[in-house]
Amino acid sequence: MIGVGKTKQYASVLDKPLSRGRQEVSLSAFAFLFSELVQYNQTQVDNIAELERRLEDAGYAVGARVLELLCHREKVADSLEKGTEHEDEYMISEKELLVNRFISVPKDMGAFNCGAFVAGIVKGVLDNSGFPAVVTAHFVPIEGQHRPRTTILIKFAEEVLHREARLG
């Protein structure tokens, strides 16, 4: 894209060729950045729900821009299950969600889950591709393991189910 010492100028970001999308940065660079994102947002809120909502907002902005679950592009989630109790619920589960890998939640923050950010990404993707849904992140304890896994719960809007039923 950019040659040594010589860089092409584009009139607008839209004129640039889209990058190949296979570049990587280190996981720790992302983890450091994400940690700052969480810490900053902590200073802007006074309860956990609000904090999760803000992280979800940030995630939504990301999701809306890629329409692809980037975290999972090269890796299938550990499991995708259809909710057993409700027709409209789907779950994506990860043993160790990327954003939770270096996170430990202090006791006084209760059930706060940084997965809210990923839930936001998923919601951003779904909303913008015509599948409005409520997406939330939850810790699910697994027997015999110290760390709970994270489940991203997707609950599609009624209209989506109606439409899918019509389309058969």
Partner: peptide, 13 residues
């Protein structure tokens, strides 16, 4: 990790 995830997360921040 995917660089776009990083880029977009920074942008969102």
């Amino acid at each position: 990790v995917n660089a776009e995830l990083f880029t977009l997360t920074y942008g969102a921040m």
